[in-house]
């Protein structure tokens, strides 16, 4: 879903620019959020009202919105103003082009999103694991769902500048998948995922500035994938590397009869017939 939403943000960005002619970040982000929202809504609507299944609905919305965004981009590029030049950076992201003002805005919005998640923690938790139960205990499931989707959309819109629409889903999916391997509880998982995300962001930026000619967004995505891959392999308990060992152990173990394991059993059994 994150992938479809981030692709769906593109036409909103370009449309916001075309309609107002300005490249103010809040404006573009509002456009991005609106069209990502519309994309998510359409996916749900298509699944509910037709025989199209989720995978196809996602692929459909993703590619059509992105294609339409590309069409709008060619329109924008015909504008005589130089302002349109920066729009393309939303495709792959360009963290280096961000201004201090942008960073401050992103930090503020991120803090707000974090605050909302902390405040509504229990509600979101119940919603994620058992929506039917959430409805039964009288939570406004619909409203919470809308709010959660809005938060995701906002996060995507904020991340687009750095990551671009194509690779945005890497930083949405990979840290969470990595964190899942280390813990079975939601609280540590969220904190770990946040940490992994931050780590890949820092690592990616550093790498791309140390080594020349490395685009930041893809390197951040690679760092996130690397962390996820490492976690899949080596996390305690769930790591795939550990999973091989017990399997061999079982194979080579001698078969022990129930009598050997539990001698008391023998006492209760009748002896051989005379």
């Amino acid at each position: 879903m994150g992938d479809a939403m981030s692709h769906a943000a593109l036409p909103g960005i370009v449309l916001a620019f075309l309609l107002t002619g300005s490249r103010d970040l809040p404006l573009l982000l509002a456009g991005a959020s609106l069209s990502a929202w519309l994309g998510a809504l359409l996916v749900v609507f298509i699944i509910r009202h037709s025989r199209i299944r989720p995978d196809a609905a996602l692929g459909l919305v993703l590619s059509v919105f992105f294609g339409f965004g590309m069409v709008l981009l060619t329109v924008a590029q015909r504008r005589p103003t130089a302002a349109q030049a920066g729009l393309e950076r939303f495709l792959f992201g360009q963290a280096a082009m961000m201004l201090r003002r942008d960073v401050e805005g992103i930090a503020l919005a991120a803090a707000l999103i974090l605050l909302l998640i902390v405040l509504l923690w229990k509600e979101f938790k119940v919603l994620a694991f058992d929506p039917a139960f959430a409805a039964a205990i009288g939570l406004p499931v619909m409203a919470l769902d809308v709010l959660l989707t809005t938060l995701i959309v906002l996060t995507i819109a904020l991340g687009l500048q750095a990551m671009g629409v194509v690779l945005m889903s890497a930083v949405l999916v990979a840290p969470a998948a990595a964190a899942r391997q280390w813990t079975n509880r939601l609280e540590p998982m969220v904190i770990l995922a946040g940490g992994f995300g931050a780590l890949s962001g820092i690592l990616g930026t550093l790498l791309s500035s140390w080594i020349g000619r490395l685009p930041t967004g893809p390197v951040i995505a690679l760092c996130a994938s690397g962390i996820a891959l490492f976690s899949l392999g080596f996390a305690p308990h769930r790591g795939l590397v550990w999973a091989w060992k017990p399997l061999r152990y079982v194979k080579t173990r001698k078969v022990i009869s129930p009598f050997e394991r539990n001698p008391q059993l023998k006492d209760g059994t009748p002896g051989p017939l005379p």
Binding site: G2, D3, F92, V166, L167, S169, A170, L172, V173, A174, A177, R213, L214, P215, G217, P218, V219, A221, L222, A224, S225, G226, A228, L229
Partner: peptide
């Protein structure tokens, strides 16, 4: 899916850039 394709796509982009 998300893990695999973003990683390979990023590698491709990095390859192009480098």
């Amino acid at each position: 899916l998300g893990l695999m394709f973003t990683a390979l796509f990023s590698l491709g982009v990095v390859g192009i850039a480098r």
